[in-house]
């Protein structure tokens, strides 16, 4: 069971949240101009690192707000969490594998 800190509600059990996959994947700026390959990359391809990973979570049985978590996928350690309008934090322990 992961212990994840919601930026608004504080630390709660993983069972209160819903997972949303990789964070910082912007919608294409000019969708009409995209090739099939570019659409495939946007729709189907996500990073899958072994190590620090910025990902989205939603506090589905709390405040119901989306936010981002920096988590190590090898150790499952939750490194930090941050709001959607904040950039990915630069952490010394999360810098090695980007």
């Amino acid at each position: 069971m992961l212990l994840i800190t919601c930026p608004w509600c504080g630390p709660r059990d993983e069972t209160e949240y819903h997972y949303g996959g990789q964070a910082h994947v912007p919608y294409p700026e000019t969708p009409a101009d995209l090739t099939d390959e570019q659409w495939a990359a946007y729709v189907f391809y996500r990073d899958n690192p072994k190590g620090p990973f910025a990902e989205r979570w939603m506090h589905s049985i709390g405040c119901r707000r989306w936010f981002n978590v920096l988590r190590d996928t090898a150790t499952h350690e939750v490194l930090t969490s941050y709001r959607l309008d904040e950039p990915r934090p630069e952490l010394p322990q999360a810098g090695g594998n980007r």
Binding site: M1, E14, Y19, K50, T73, A74, T75
Partner: peptide, 13 residues
Amino acid sequence: DSYNGYGQRGSFH
């Protein structure tokens, strides 16, 4: 388990 992970373990719930 819903999240990405390479730890060969998951959550007990």
